[in-house]
Simulated scan of single mutants.
Amino acid sequence: MSATYQLALQQLTDSALPTGAFAHSLGFESYIERGLVGDEVTFGTWLSAFVGQQLVYSDGLALRFLYEGVDVGLLDSVLTGQLLAREVREASLKMGGRLLEIGGEVFPSGELEVYRGLVREGGAMGHQPLAFGVIARSLKVPFDEALSAYMFATVTSLTQNAVRAIPLGQNAGQRVLRHAHDAVAAAVLDVTQLCWDDFGAVSPGLEISQMRHERQRARMFMS
């Protein structure tokens, strides 16, 4: 069983999984436009802040509460209200929708069908971290492994996009990913120590940059 879920988890977090993650910067492109991110060091700094804030207080806590048995419809509704930047909210729904579709074909389960049914009937929107969490939990992936994998997959997608956008060299991208190991490990620990009142307490600076992207003069990414 262990080998089975580990292979499934690798498939779910593979950069080749067609969820559309390559089309989203989740705000870092605004920092490039303002001249605040422009090389390996400055992108790494932004990435650490993103992991420690948005991934912890939004996606990470959503995953944890889902694993703890909080109703997926409630979590979906709260996430929709918390994602203040329209583009980031839409990115979560686009990637979540693709993940629900892929999961329904590749990793079907009763739990997944419940969430897909809610989305079809308009009772939920279908956010990426919840789609991932429902699939991972149905595969019996332990929470800490699911959260670590989800966070690092997000970090990998963003770094691959930064390699194109800044641009960074491929080796520089790998160095960024290596340095991000500690940030992800710390973020996983933080998620386990927070409470419901912390859910959605994302840094305003990140959210403002994500809102600015919508009106950016020139851009490569959808968010």
Rank of each mutant, 00 (worst) to 15 (best):
S77W: 06
L194P: 11
G27Q: 05
M1K: 15
Y150R: 09
P108I: 03
A180C: 10
V41D: 10
G52A: 06
L177Q: 08
G103N: 01
A180T: 04
D71S: 11
F28L: 05
Q210I: 07
R120S: 15
R164T: 14
K94Y: 12
A165S: 12
D59K: 13
S223Y: 05
L9T: 07
T192A: 13
R116A: 08
P129F: 04
A153L: 02
G35D: 09
E207Y: 07
A180V: 05
V114N: 10
T4K: 14
A85H: 01
G126T: 08
Q216S: 10
Q128C: 09
A23M: 13
A3M: 11
L74T: 14
P129I: 04
Q11A: 07
G97A: 03
T19W: 06
S2V: 13
V114C: 08
R178S: 15
G173H: 06
A131I: 04
V72I: 14
T192M: 11
V155Y: 01
Q170E: 15
P167F: 09
G96V: 03
D39A: 07
A21S: 15
S77D: 12
T42H: 08
A49F: 08
G69Q: 07
S92I: 02
Y67F: 05
A16D: 12
D198F: 09
P108N: 08
A185Y: 11
G110F: 09
P129A: 06
T42I: 07
E111V: 04
D197A: 15
D76C: 08
V141A: 02
E111G: 06
S92G: 10
G96N: 02
S109V: 09
L168R: 06
E40S: 08
Q11P: 00
V155K: 03
L206M: 07
G52C: 04
Q6W: 09
A3I: 12
S109E: 11
A187T: 01
G110K: 10
R98D: 10
R137Q: 15
L83M: 14
A149M: 02
A21T: 12
F50T: 02
D198E: 10
A91L: 00
S25T: 13
V106I: 12
V78L: 10
F65Q: 05
L75H: 05
D59I: 06
L99Q: 07
A62S: 15
L112G: 05
S58P: 01
L36H: 11
P204I: 12
M151A: 03
D198I: 08
